[in-house]
Design a protein around this nucleic acid. Structure first.
Lengths: 98, 98
DNA sequence: GGCAAATATAATAATATTTCAATAAAGAAA
DNA sequence: TTTCTTTATTGAAATATTATTATATTTGCC
């Protein structure tokens, strides 16, 4: 149950956690739910510029919080539930004792 | 189970989450555990300058992640477990479905 | 009161993040 | 191939965060 976390591990954990800690990215992750959505849908749903949407998606992707898949010329994003679940555990582990 | 989160709520949640998303602050929160520690102890444990420690503590305090209590001229910090637990739920709620 | 110890604040500098605007890339479809 | 649609990238500007340094505040004790 993760008693001792090194600064290195904490740094890594904080980095991943930080990716989620942005209103737009949280909105995206929430919108994805258990399914998948293409960039246009996401963009329309959040009412954000295309480039900005793309940039946030990239960040989520690079940090492995989401996966992407191409179909025709749409790109569908989906949550990487392992990592999302991992973040929950990270928060829990970083606050031991309850 | 927080099905619909408004952008406002997400923004607020992200803001709080962001406070935790920093290696030093996570280290502090981890060090606090279920007990309390004064600033000097925290500072020595994390090997950080006094001013920086104080600033991070302030941030945690302002966002209600910790409480403080004075005894003599030491100030003891303690986790606000409600909020910490709330963050865990926040992460869970913002990633519905698992 | 005056001094020392512990903690806080403020101003600035250094860095990092986010947005914006324009352009590029990749695939579909004619 | 040409063009259209969707998504990605890039560089610069705007903002936000973090560290640094110096100074201030608060309290206990003499």
């Amino acid at each position: 149950m993760a008693k001792e976390l090194t600064l290195d591990k904490l740094t890594l954990a904080a980095k991943t956690l930080k990716v989620l800690a942005h209103p737009v990215r949280m909105k995206i992750v929430e919108f994805l739910g258990d399914g998948e959505q293409n960039v246009s849908s996401i963009q329309k749903h959040i009412r954000l510029q295309q480039a900005v949407t793309s940039q946030h998606l990239k960040l989520l992707l690079v940090h492995n919080l989401v996966n992407k898949r191409r179909e025709k010329n749409f790109i569908y994003y989906r949550k990487n539930t392992d990592i999302i679940a991992g973040i929950i555990n990270c928060v829990r582990d970083c606050t031991p004792g309850k």
